[in-house]
Design a protein around this nucleic acid. Structure first.
Lengths: 167, 167
DNA sequence: TTTCATGCAAAATGTTTGCACACGA
DNA sequence: TCGTGTGCAAACATTTTGCATGAAA
């Protein structure tokens, strides 16, 4: 259906960890405990996250045997380089999402609850390419963020009954 | 013509400074030397700029009688609130552009020379709204940045050796 | 046993804030 | 005059870096 903007799926040959190991080896880099822990945690769920989120998850998951902040930053950077993660900036801080194994997509960003909703549109890509062609611009990618209020927050706003916020 | 993505113009009743004064007065804020200097400098040209650019321009323009960094940040923030400027984030730093008097548009961002090229597309807005409707999302705006290499940098790149591919 | 990676502390970056004084209305 | 705005310095938040130690290969 033409007006369906939901995401499809992308079949991938390897698991993220295997893909990352390949990347590391091709560059003479090492497969360390920390890198392994980070990749595993990062692909445990498909939510968007920032460095602090990841650091907190790792601390909780592994208790004493934590990964340091610099290492998290360094590894996130490698994950972006390797194509496993995609990085974007949301009100001043870096936010990451899965890239490997997920189709190209864009986001609706709710400024109320900060949630990101993904969608996909080929027409959008077509327009992008038409514009680029006109400017003789060689496209490497794009980032579209539509800001506004999501359905849930809209409903919440309409019914001021349960005003239990602010404690 | 349908495939023309260039920008039109928007007629405005007031000059930016007058508009800003109105905004300030409506909030009981004051029209100071610094605010005046900043607005004048900001609307002297239509290029994108960041806080440092503006600070440098002001220093050059007024010599000794400079505006401090905090005041620049504070005033930029007011200019965004008042609708005169639009703010976006480009690799970690805040970049500003004229909003008042200019039509809604998006950007091609050259990662080589860092230039921003503006374009306008109603179809894009239509797609955006269709997607939002499907998600019952109330749109307040959007930001699309197409990344790649601009025509000029492409030409420059063709001249030297083409065998720098690696990997 | 030779690199490369890590953790720590410190630095760098970009932006914001507390406060005493200056100034616009 | 009165209250807002300013500049200064310091704080801030996030990310990056230098260096000695630790661990892959």
């Amino acid at each position: 259906m033409k007006n369906d903007f939901s995401l499809g799926t992308v079949r991938v040959a390897m698991k993220p960890m295997a893909r990352f190991e390949e990347y590391l080896q091709s560059r003479g880099k090492r497969i360390t405990q920390q890198r392994r822990a980070i990749v595993e945690q990062v692909f445990r769920h498909h939510e968007h996250f920032d460095a602090d989120d990841l650091l907190a998850e790792l601390a909780q998951e592994f208790g004493v045997r934590k990964v340091s902040r610099p290492t998290v930053y360094r590894t996130l950077s490698e994950l972006v380089d390797s194509g496993l993660l995609r990085k974007m900036t949301l009100n001043g801080r870096s936010v990451y999402e899965h890239d490997y194994g997920y189709p190209q997509h864009d986001h609706l960003h709710c400024t109320k609850c900060n949630r990101l909703i993904e969608f996909q549109s080929d027409e959008l890509t077509a327009i992008r390419d038409a514009v680029a062609r006109q400017h003789k611009f060689r496209v490497s990618g794009h980032r579209l963020i539509v800001t506004g209020i999501c359905d849930k927050c809209n409903r919440a706003q309409l019914r001021p009954t349960r005003r239990l916020e602010m404690v």
